[in-house]
Design a binder for these strands. Sequence first.
DNA 1: CCTGTTTGCTGCATCGATTGTGCAAACAGT
DNA 2: ACTGTTTGCACAATCGATGCAGCAAACAGG
Lengths: 355, 355
Amino acid sequence: MPKLFTMTRAPRKATIYDIARLSGASPSTVSAALGESWRTRRIAEATVESIRKIAAEQGYSANMQARGLRKARSGLVGMIIPLHDNRFFTALSQSFEAFARERGLVPVIASSLREPVEERRIVETLISYAVDFLFIAGATDPDSVSALCRSADLRHIFVDLPGRGAPSVVSDNHKGAAELTRRLLADRPLRGGSARDRLYLIGGDAGDYATARRIEAFRDVLTEAGIPPDPAQIIACGYAPRSAMREVAALCDRLGGLPGGLLVNSLTAFEGVLGHLSGQPAEALRAMVVGCYDYDPFAAWLQFPVHMVRQDAHGLIREAYRMIDENVRNLVLTMVEPEQIAPRTFYDSPFADRG
Amino acid sequence: MPKLFTMTRAPRKATIYDIARLSGASPSTVSAALGESWRTRRIAEATVESIRKIAAEQGYSANMQARGLRKARSGLVGMIIPLHDNRFFTALSQSFEAFARERGLVPVIASSLREPVEERRIVETLISYAVDFLFIAGATDPDSVSALCRSADLRHIFVDLPGRGAPSVVSDNHKGAAELTRRLLADRPLRGGSARDRLYLIGGDAGDYATARRIEAFRDVLTEAGIPPDPAQIIACGYAPRSAMREVAALCDRLGGLPGGLLVNSLTAFEGVLGHLSGQPAEALRAMVVGCYDYDPFAAWLQFPVHMVRQDAHGLIREAYRMIDENVRNLVLTMVEPEQIAPRTFYDSPFADRG
DNA sequence: CCTGTTTGCTGCATCGATTGTGCAAACAGT
DNA sequence: ACTGTTTGCACAATCGATGCAGCAAACAGG
């Protein structure tokens, strides 16, 4: 069997100067021939052909650093997400990447882990690399990010939470949460006869835009239903699984058992909630209604039914790209509708043929 | 309230030439002062201080395209994964990113959707951007990727599946699957009295390295246990949820009911399996043992217990970085041990304080 | 044949940072 | 005071691609 890979060091990558030498043309002609500009620069079609042939033989590909330096744009496009380990954000990533590829751009996805310092560092880094535009999903401090981007003249769009410094595309959190709350109440009308006979919202950060909207909707719907919520029914304890687990345990302690209903505000919080709930007897669980803002295919099939809301990640990203394509600069705020997913439903993602 | 953002176009970003002008020093001195080389270039500490002060005031940050062009490296590091929408791969992403940041590098993560053509395009693009090294997780054609990388003198490491053209770091799939199979058998010794009284492996591509190792282990353990498997017990129907759903439905049809046990070979396949299983009566489900290669926090709490295997994504990536750091060039293959996760277990990820 | 236009290409400066080389001024040694 | 070393910095080339300005040759029109 032949040795597949020799250890011979590859010769330096071919440049337009190499192709120029080989083809007898000048570097500027080669550049034009390999790019789009050969027509306007009146390079003979025959010349273009022969140059392209040689370039292909040499396995030429442009040095994007040089091109970027000259053209002051890189072909890179950035997106900031809080973390990779969450279905909603990975759905954003997947769509962001797909649309970027469609346009011949290279997506750079960075996760901030919701750290303001990290967030700024990432933006500064992406600016250093001259990304052509930036999508910001889940910034802790949108205004400061906008200021940074503006100072570098970098186009940016806020996704999932609105900023005051650039166009924004957000989920209709109020509508999604209102509808979810209604569904939970329809399932079991928790009129608050006792503290246990109530619906509790858990998880998220009340300072966050999305969470704030959802809490608002939660309050509105309960109030409309004639059962205005007690502040104790809203437990915005952050997104970390651990803390949600602690809080739901503490709640059960206070109540002397499971609450009548739980609206969990994020998948990560739900992971924690689950850690506690699953220690509970099955019949107790069945006596409870549970909802979760955000959809996860596995969470759809738990021991107890879970009403879920699927945010339209693909739609959010599509809208954001539309704004880039149409060069929208004003402070518009586009809403994208989320979708209610009934318990035990098989949902096919836009990348369902995936592996 | 003051207008937060004026529409005044930002002045062009400051360069070392601007800083040079402002500080009275030469561009080369500025470059040295702002970098690491000022000591060896004998720039007076006082000069360095004053230049850095001015640079900070001007919000200077280096143009990475120019630097990259000159130094022939970019500070970008690439990783290819099949897709974002899967816990195992996102865990790889998260760790890849964390280690990159630690080293001051910018991670570029690209998903190939397991398309050979896309895969090559991605590698070529990353080469154009002069990424400093590349991790390849889940290539469809490792040898061809290696050839491409070698032609550009690009260091690369295979992760999760071994390549013949570069060092590899892989999970010990055989061990993980063997142990999982044993656990399933311990739970319910399926001796194959009838076709229903058997363990079935479903999902994955028998041509894939990981799947092949797992199938091997599955066979080995059953054979050891004195119940050599029938070929019909191995259904490598790919990774797509839809196809797993079809296949498991077909299997149940053939058997006239649920099989005694199911070892699902990937999370995406498991999503599909679930779509079918969940239509089944609860007591039928409880009569079955289920295992899944790969871990998902929600899958841990389904209606029926699921034995899972958690691959050590963090460990895989750590090893891969170690090889880069230590400049390993020979064709080593490092194994990282996966971990068995008992049903209904709360597992804390390395990024558990996340949001 | 002579002038004006079009065609097809080359030369050169440029983007911003890095780095090898060179060169004064300061300083040390005798 | 005179030579040799060290210190501190500036100059200019360079990385690879791009695009403006310009220049021969071919060609058209009279």
